[in-house]
Design a protein around this nucleic acid. Sequence first.
DNA 1: AGCGCGATGCCCT
DNA 2: GGGCATCGCGCTA
Length: 201
Amino acid sequence: MAKKLPLSFYRQDDVTSIARQLLGKVLVTSIDNVRTAGVIVETEAYAGIRDRASHAWNNRRTQRTEVMYQPGGLAYVYLCYGLHYLFNVVTNVKEVPEAILVRALEPLDGIAAMQHRYPHKNTVKMTAGPGSLCKALGIDAALNGEQLTGNRIWIENAPAIADAQILAGTRVGVQYAGADALLPYRFSIKDNKWVSKGKGL
DNA sequence: AGCGCGATGCCCT
DNA sequence: GGGCATCGCGCTA
């Protein structure tokens, strides 16, 4: 089994750089003693208080966003549209509320368990999209605030993806953010069929 | 293939 | 009250 990424990885200060570095790394959950894992193929950076698309824009601080203000290396899991959980990685240091949304995975381990949690006609769609991958990996509100160096959810190291293999585009579903909606903060591995179908890449 | 819609909780005018 | 970091279905072609 590959090595877990250390807390120092998450505490770097450039959220878009970390979002690029996360591509190719392996997101793992161990829930009820079942290991499910997938290669991260798509991410979105949310640049804290200066980014209108971020939950922490303008220093917005609520019970929900509180975990973003903690030191990097925690899971930020929240409910979207009242029914989908979305998994984010909290980055940077304490009081700097930046995070990265994981949008798509290439299934690696525990594929049968994923299919059981999230029966899907088309296996390619099982982990394409932030709500889908949470369902497949069993991620819900119980993992909000969990340390990513613990034994329930973590990210394992893997070789970096070369810049030439990374596509950058606009983030999905953030039109309300005005000019910030145009920032190229969505990253994916070029020509990877497991990337979600949202526009902008 | 692409649009419209409903589910449904948290956070803001 | 309205909009959202979504998804799958059922409808149009």
